[in-house]
């Protein structure tokens, strides 16, 4: 299932993403500590975090995750959006906490 379909199915808002919205999501990874995520987030996974700043975009780009899902009503700051658009990283917004957000995606993709 791709990022766009997940957004629709789970009721997430799309904050950024162009071609990136067609990327297939292979799994879910949850973490807010950037260098943890940097070392461990698997390629093509949806990465759930509350870190709505541009460093998340850098981590997403370098680890090649399928998308960033900001959970718990976190809004991305302006710099993050700018970077995400520039590098075409999909950013989804979820009202739910990390666990419930992950569960929603899990149900959608399995």
């Amino acid at each position: 299932m791709n990022v766009n379909e997940i957004a629709e199915k789970c009721g997430f808002k799309i904050a950024a993403g162009d071609d990136a919205l067609t990327r297939t999501v292979e799994g879910i990874y949850c973490c807010d500590l950037l260098s943890f995520a940097m070392g461990r987030a698997p390629e093509d996974f949806a990465w759930i975090t509350v870190m709505g700043n541009m460093n998340s975009v850098a981590v997403a780009s370098l680890t090649d995750v399928a998308c960033i899902v900001l959970c718990d009503r976190v809004q991305p700051d302006e710099d993050m959006l700018k970077k995400a658009v520039q590098q075409d990283i999909a950013v989804l917004l979820s009202d739910k906490p990390a666990f419930d957000t992950g569960l929603l995606i899990h149900e959608a993709i399995s």
Binding site: L33, S35, G39, T49, M51, N53, N55, S56
Partner: peptide
């Protein structure tokens, strides 16, 4: 507060 400070940067550099 920006998400740094896990103390995993140098270990990541060594690992990778």
């Amino acid at each position: 507060n920006l998400g740094f400070g896990a103390g995993m940067g140098l270990p990541n550099m060594k690992k990778y």
